[in-house]
Write a protein that binds this DNA or RNA. Structure first.
Length: 593
RNA sequence: CGGGACGUAGCGCAGCUUGGUAGCGCGCAGCGUUCGGGACGCUGAGGUCGCCGGUUCGAAUCCGGCCGUCCCGACCA
């Protein structure tokens, strides 16, 4: 380093409090004036523009200083609430030997979502996408009912080879998850741990500035017990949620049901073939034969493959298949629509003329809405021909009657009869009753009072930290930028210095800074040599909850301007009272609502 | 995986149709004037035009392949 010519350090500009100043001029906060071209979601745009995150690759983001501070605070809120319900924090490896996943079977059940790699010896490993296996193997060191219940958790990096990362932090390949696990000897214990988590999740989300809706959900690959998702309304959401306007029925469309009105089938005329040249859609057929083939009088026939096995799915003509329901019913994730050539080979016709009438040797699943219906219209498995007068019970080999259809907006609630609404939500948390799948696989058994062994009953509970952080932004922003709740704000106060080159002004700002820091407030001192407009705009963009403006004008008059980011309401306070006022309002808000 | 779009300076973009060795705005550096809501002047730095190959005297531009990123559909915290 060049010693001789270096200018002496200007000690007057350093904080007197002994704390290291967080001066904006020295901070790495790369704000952008324009929206990044590849961002769509509001949280994605604002987090990049505000200098919180930068993309490294698709679904892979660096947390810059501001982003890391928010992430840490979100984690802390979660940690506090987990501890409050008796959770014990651990930290497990992210790198797992394949063996442990083979033991639970998920090595084989999970297809491409899991990152797999080999070590130098050629041994298979995975990057953990969740940690049921590891916790279950630790649970083998529990032996007695006296050891239960346990709540174990960690806040750890998860890896998922997402087919389609998107929307900034909302869907990524590497993220931090708080995952907790309850270990109980019986169902009431599981219920209790589950309820504790439900309550804790509401507290967590409300504290960080979200308004969660708990909905009934499908468990997917996790198991088949009860499962509740915490959703936040947002256009950036990827799930459709059905909620009742009249009662508290709330469900993901993946499991949602509704009440259907009865449809008059009319006089049954008996099975009859009729020509339908060039009529290959439900709509076209309905228009050509409005009196007999209205959409809700047709049977929609879909060919799906479960692994190698073809399955015929029958739905009412105006209904849509909900694929997750099919997967849950079939207990398989390996479910896909048939290819045109496969379909032709199976049924002898192209999509548009398919039906289940007379089909032998193929598994047929029919939707509940078709049960008891007669006088329907369906394809005859010959291009250009359909059947009328179809009575499924009589004319087809329906193996199972199951719920397969997707509920639509405006349908009727099966519980109370009111109207159902459908809206988009971001999944910010998910809690599952796992049961004994993993404890059995890992032989995690405990003995009861009588000395009888029981597999431990597990529950599994997740919150995506960065996703929650993005959700907070989705829910808390305006045209100027982010509006962080105090509970997770990267800084609580920003002191905007209007003329940092003016010694008196800068000294006043430094003094205020010291006072606030002494009082334990997290302050960012904007001492940059920028025009006021730039500083105001940046402060609003990064969303600091409170701003104090310190300029020659205010210092001279003895009254400083105070602005609350939410609502942008301005007030004035005597210079000597500013810090006291801020400390009061911030202390009150810090814990979150 | 299927469909669509894009890839040129840190960011946002033009140039490509009609080949001649790269330009605009913002940002950045220096100097000066400014300074309570994204200032102005002057000077300047910064680019393997995603990668590989082909056509051509000559390729950001034409052709082929690959890679990457985003968006729309099927998956999950």
């Amino acid at each position: 380093m060049d010693r001789g010519s270096r200018a002496p350090v200007d000690y007057r500009r350093r904080s007197q409090s002994g704390h290291e100043s967080m001066r904006w001029s020295k901070a790495f906060i790369p704000t952008l004036r324009e929206d990044p071209a590849d961002a769509e979601a509001i949280s994605h745009k604002l987090l990049v523009r505000g200098g919180f995150i930068r993309q490294l690759a698709a679904g892979s983001y660096s947390m810059l200083p501001l982003g890391q501070r928010v992430r840490r605070k979100v984690s802390e809120v979660i940690r506090g609430e987990m501890d409050r319900i008796g959770g014990q924090q651990m930290h497990l490896p992210a790198l797992h030997p394949a063996e442990i996943w083979q033991r639970s079977g998920r090595w084989y059940d999970i297809a491409d979502d899991m990152f797999r790699l080999k070590d130098r010896k050629g041994t298979d490993h995975v990057l953990g996408m969740t940690h049921e296996e590891i916790f279950a193997s630790l649970a083998t060191e529990l032996f007695s009912y006296r050891d239960l219940p346990q709540i174990w958790y960690q806040i750890q990096t998860k890896f998922r080879d997402e087919p389609r990362p998107k929307s900034g932090l909302l869907r990524v390949k590497e993220f931090t998850m708080k995952d907790s696990y309850t270990l109980d000897i019986d169902e009431p214990g599981l219920d209790s741990g589950f309820d504790k988590h439900r309550e804790a999740y509401f507290r967590i989300f409300r504290r960080i500035g979200l308004d969660p809706v708990a909905v009934e959900a499908s468990s997917g690959i996790m198991g088949d017990g009860e499962s509740v998702e915490f959703m936040m309304r947002s256009p950036a959401g990827e799930d459709w949620i059905i909620t009742c306007d009249g009662c508290d029925y709330r469900a993901n469309v993946e499991t949602a049901t509704s009440a259907l009105e009865d449809i008059a089938d009319g006089e049954s005329s008996g099975l009859e073939r009729f020509p339908t040249p060039d009529l290959t859609t439900i709509k076209a057929l309905a228009e050509a034969h409005p009196e007999t083939a209205a959409a809700d009088h047709q049977i929609k026939t879909l060919v799906y493959y479960v692994g190698e096995e073809p399955v015929l799915l029958l739905l009412r003509g105006d209904h849509e298949l909900q694929e997750q329901k099919l997967k849950d019913r079939l207990r398989s994730e390996d479910v896909r629509p048939g290819q045109p050539d496969e379909i032709r080979e199976l049924l002898g016709a192209d999509p548009g003329s398919l039906g289940a009438v007379g089909v032998e040797g193929v598994r047929v699943l029919a939707d509940l809405a078709l049960q008891g219906r007669e006088n329907m219209v369906t394809g005859a498995n010959e291009d250009g021909w359909h059947y009328s007068g179809v009575d499924l019970e009589r004319d087809a080999n329906v193996g199972e009657w199951v719920d397969l259809r997707a509920v639509e907006d405006g349908e009727t609630c099966a519980v109370c009869g009111a109207t159902l609404s459908r809206w988009k939500g971001v999944e910010i948390g998910h809690i599952f009753k796992l049961g004994t799948k993993y404890s059995k696989a890992f032989e995690a058994f405990v003995q009861d009072e009588e000395g009888v062994s029981h597999p431990i009953i597990m529950g599994s509970y997740g919150i995506g930290v960065e996703r929650a952080m993005a959700a907070v932004v989705e829910a808390n922003n305006d045209e100027s930028g982010i509006i962080w709740p105090v509970s997770v704000a990267p800084y609580e106060v920003v002191i905007t210095v209007i003329r940092p080159d003016d010694e008196v002004t800068m000294a006043a700002a430094d003094a205020l800074y010291d006072e606030l820091v002494e009082a334990g407030v997290e302050v960012l001192l904007d001492d940059r040599d920028e025009r006021p407009g730039v500083k105001f705009a940046d402060a609003e963009l990064i969303g600091i909850p409170y701003r104090v403006t310190v300029g020659p004008r205010g210092v001279e008059s003895g009254a400083l301007e105070l602005v609350e980011r939410r609502g942008m309401e301005k007030s004035e306070a005597p210079l000597a009272e500013v810090s006291g006022e801020l400390v009061e309002v911030i202390t009150a808000a810090r814990f979150g609502v």
